[in-house]
Simulated assay, not measured.
Amino acid sequence: MVSRSTRVLAAITLACAGLDLVVLAGFHLIQPEIDPLTSATSEYVHGKAGAMSSVTSAAVGLGAVSLAVAVWRITVTVSARVGAGLLAVFGLAKLAQSFFPIDAGGATTTGLMHNLLGNLAFLVLPVAAILITPAAARACGRGQPGWWPRLAAWLIVLTSVLVLVGDGVGLFGLAQRIYLVSAALWTALVASWLWSARSRDQAAQNQVGDAGQNSGGQQAPQGPSGSGL
C-alpha cells in the first residue's frame, strides 16, 4: 500500500514522461533539418521552439526526482534505496543540464557542463533501473511473474549499450532516441505501478466501512423466554 502523497509523486512522474515523449516527437516535425539518425536530441535547443528542449530536460529531471522519493518511501531494502539515490542523481543531473545547452559550434564551458551532466545521467540510470524495478514491483503487488520486472530493467541496460554501439557506427542519433524513449517508458511504468497501487487512506476507509457493516449487522442478544402463566 502507498500513501496519497506517494501517488501524487507518481502522477508527477507520469506527466513529465508524457511531456518528454510528446515534445521529442514534436521536434521531429518542426525541425526536420535535424537528422534523427546521426544528430543528438540536444541540438534541437538551437532551432525552432528550442526552449522546449530545456523545459523537457527539466521535466525529465523533476519526474525522476519525484519517482526516486516515491520509491524510497515504499521500499525498505538497501539495494532499492541505493537505486532510488542513483535515480535522484540522474534527475538532478537532468535538471542541471537544462541550464547548460549544448554548443552550437566550437567548445565552451556551457557545452562541457552539458556533456558532463549528460554522461553522469547516462551512467547511473541503468544501475538505478536494475536496483529499483523488482523491489518496486513487489511493493506494488506487480512482482508476478518475477521475470518481467527484471526484463523491463534490463531493457534500459540494453538500450544504453545500443547508444555506445550507435556512436561507434555513426548512428548515435537513432540509438539515443531509442534510449530516451525506453527511459521515459520505464519511469512511466514504475510510476503507473505506484499510481494504481492501493493507497493506505483507501485501505483505512475500507476497514472502517467493513467494521461498521459488521457491527451494524449483529443483532442484540435476546433474554431468556419467560414461562407461560
Rank of each mutant, 00 (worst) to 15 (best):
A59T: 10
G209F: 00
R81S: 04
S227T: 13
T75S: 13
L120Y: 06
G105P: 02
C16D: 15
F99N: 06
L174I: 06
G26H: 04
G26L: 09
T56S: 15
L37R: 12
G63E: 03
G141T: 05
V127G: 04
S215G: 00
K94A: 13
W154K: 02
T6N: 07
L19D: 05
R198N: 05
C16P: 06
L117V: 10
A11M: 08
V208L: 15
L87M: 13
A153C: 05
A15F: 05
Y179N: 10
W72L: 06
A203E: 15
L131K: 02
S215W: 14
E33D: 14
A68G: 07
P149S: 04
V23W: 04
T6K: 03
W147S: 06
V55Y: 12
A17C: 12
P149L: 06
W148D: 02
H114V: 07
H114S: 03
S3Y: 02
T109E: 11
A58I: 02
I156Y: 01
Y44C: 00
Q144R: 13
S57D: 12
T75M: 09
L117A: 02
A107C: 01
A183E: 15
P126W: 00
A25W: 03
T133I: 01
L117M: 05
P134C: 06
N115E: 08
A107E: 15
R138K: 11
S5E: 09
G18V: 03
S225A: 15
A137H: 03
I130C: 06
A68D: 00
S196Y: 08
G217Y: 07
Q213M: 07
V60A: 11
A49M: 10
L112N: 13
V69P: 01
F172N: 02
A211G: 11
